[in-house]
């Protein structure tokens, strides 16, 4: 008798236990339906700003202690800078520039326009802390070139792979039109004025006047920092976006794009979009202008 009732109760208890476990399992399942957070990968700490292989940056933690911001956040997938914590990190004043004829006189106040200097980033430039490029290009070790005639270069092919293919000004511009033959620490304009590697705009602007003006006005190029006119901004210099040696091939050198959006659950592919590709013809193409 007693055994029977105990068995019954045990059965009930077992059922209850199973139920509890069942609920537990169900709850676990319910949580799994909401996929577990993917582990956050360790942040990539090295990346480039605009041009791949040009302005390399390293992430530094807690540059803005107020919010615990790093100076930059790098993309996990493309090697590009993805977010700016401190827009003025590693910058110096842009240096003297003449006013231009504009409401804001070129939107320029020396102390409020800053740049990331180029010279500290140049490998060969920094091989000798005092003489810089002149360490080799002293007229003796490497003789000064006699003319600007195109020739193959044996050094610096990491910068210009094939000097005979160099194309700027549709072939009219050669290395020594911009690089100073007798002082390789500097660039040189067509009037023979020495220009610092930190101020390429003074050289580029000599031919590209409209772009230069628009750049000064803030409607060409890139700036970060404060948005108000006259506020402190970091200006991107010409060569931070364009490679002067290959600009005629690509205005901007193609980059790896950041990942596409994730398709929403329930959408198997993005085929609904491809119907608009030109191969499908007709409707998907840009309205033909010729028809009106």
């Amino acid at each position: 008798m007693k055994i029977g009732s105990i068995a019954k109760v045990i059965f009930s208890a077992a059922a209850t236990g199973a139920l509890i476990l069942g609920v537990g399992k169900f709850r676990t399942e319910a949580q799994q339906e909401q996929p577990a957070r993917p582990a956050v990968a360790a942040p990539v700490t090295d990346c480039f700003e605009s041009r791949e292989g040009y302005t390399a940056r390293s992430r530094v933690e807690n540059v803005v202690p107020e919010y615990g911001y790093p100076n930059i956040i790098c993309s996990q997938t493309t090697g590009g800078v993805l977010w700016w914590g401190d827009p003025y990190d590693e910058t110096i004043p842009i240096g003297d520039m003449p006013d231009i004829d504009d409401v804001t006189k070129g939107d320029y106040l020396t102390e409020d326009a800053v740049i990331k200097p180029r010279e500290p980033q140049l490998t060969y430039f920094n091989m000798d802390p005092d003489k810089h490029c002149v360490m080799c290009h002293d007229g003796m070790t490497v003789p000064f070139p006699k003319d600007k005639k195109p020739r193959l270069i044996t050094m610096h092919q990491d910068i210009v792979e094939d000097s005979m293919e160099l194309m700027h000004g549709e072939g009219a511009i050669w290395c020594l039109d911009c690089h100073n033959a007798t002082n390789r620490n500097t660039l040189i304009d067509h009037r023979g004025k020495e220009i610092s590697f930190n101020q390429p705009q003074k050289l580029c602007g000599k031919c590209h006047g409209v772009e230069y003006r628009h750049w000064r006005m803030g409607i060409h190029g890139k700036r970060i920092g404060s948005w108000n006119a006259g506020g402190k901004k970091r200006w991107w210099l010409c060569t931070e976006c364009h490679n002067p040696h290959t600009v005629q091939i690509n205005r901007f050198r193609p980059l790896k794009p950041e990942p596409a959006p994730v398709l929403p659950k329930g959408m198997k592919n993005a085929a609904h979009e491809s119907v608009h590709a030109p191969s499908a013809g007709g409707h998907g193409e840009a309205t033909p202008a010729a028809t009106h």
Binding site: S50, W84, P87, V103, M217, I224, N228, A229, C241, L255
Partner: peptide, 29 residues
């Protein structure tokens, strides 16, 4: 007073932002 995150990150400077009431602002220009 700071630019938007998208303006700052654009690698080619395609994005500009500012005060429409200020003729000296980049957007007005």
């Amino acid at each position: 007073g700071r630019y938007t995150a998208c303006v700052e990150v654009c690698p080619v400077g395609a994005r500009t932002f500012g005060n429409l009431l200020d003729p000296a602002s980049e957007v007005r220009k």
